[in-house]
Design a protein around this nucleic acid. Structure first.
Lengths: 154, 154
DNA sequence: ACCAAAGAGGACCGGATTAGTACGATATAA
DNA sequence: TTATATCGTACTAATCCGGTCCTCTTTGGT
């Protein structure tokens, strides 16, 4: 199970709220209430998204947040990148010769790149809009997975 | 940055060692020495891989580990699945109605499935063999980013 | 039959990461 | 000028994960 941060999850939810709002400006408080996520946390998420240029913020008395562009043009890759930095599986890949101690022994430095690119492409192919449109008659709980835990798993 | 466990990283390295060994049996101690990873940790990794049917183990006095099948037939998806459980981005996706508190509000439960499938496909497309063969003249450090403190694990 | 080697399995602990909170600063419209 | 709402940063608590240790089981050799 590859984990992405809970905040990223929230980000998607919040963006969903924003996308439904007909491009109207919504305050952090509104979004917090609508999403059920505590205000400070939503605020944090919104800040990160604004930083990543996914949404725009308007300060001041009647301020709020708006999608920076239509939901169709926002990809999951964009969102994840905003929330977690560049999309890549963490490994020796991430540079800096000092970082990986078994560097000289590891026969495959750099080949993660291929994997990373594949994943990046996969994530770029899905837009926020697609995440919002729930297909008719889909199964809400596709995989019944064991609680997390690698050792406990299987 | 999507994180996969450090153990998964080790798994790839260790499997690399195994793949080079002409299908000979190697003990955990040997692999630990060759990979530079502490024995208990390597042992744990090997156990998990054996559990996932990636490698086979032979107990007893002249025991050891061997790849369960040729490196060409072992995909990165297999390895990650063995180390971290089913491949999916953690989200409301992962079932159990109690798990997600904003469930009723979240307009996009289940659409992660599309993303997950894409990622799974991407990972399945890369084999251990491919990870081993370093392309001629590749750049060892494609992205220059600060090293993540690796806890000085020898 | 016994002993040594090697893996299997589980429990445990410390450290690192992250979620969540709080507070002060800044901008804006009325 | 004041009320409102975001911005930015610092801090704390809880969770998760990597790593280690210990004991049991299996197996081959003596």
């Amino acid at each position: 199970m590859i984990r992405l941060n809970r905040l990223t999850d929230y980000a998607i939810v919040v963006l969903g709220q924003l996308a439904q709002g007909d491009s109207e400006s919504r305050t952090a408080a509104q979004l917090a209430q609508d999403s059920g996520v505590p205000l400070p946390t939503v605020s944090k998420v919104l800040k990160m998204l604004a930083h990543g240029k996914i949404i725009t913020s308007q300060r001041g008395v009647s301020g709020g947040y708006t999608l920076a562009r239509p939901a169709v043009l926002i990809t999951v890759a964009d969102i994840i990148a905003a929330m977690e930095g560049p999309i890549a599986l963490t490994a020796c890949v991430d540079g800096a010769s000092g970082g990986c101690e078994v560097e000289t022994l590891c026969p495959m430095r750099g080949n993660w790149d291929k994997v990373n690119r594949a994943i990046r492409d996969a994530l770029t192919a899905v837009t926020l809009q697609e995440m919002l449109t729930v297909p008719a008659g889909f199964d809400p709980f596709p995989l019944a997975r064991p609680p997390r835990g690698l050792a406990a798993a299987q």
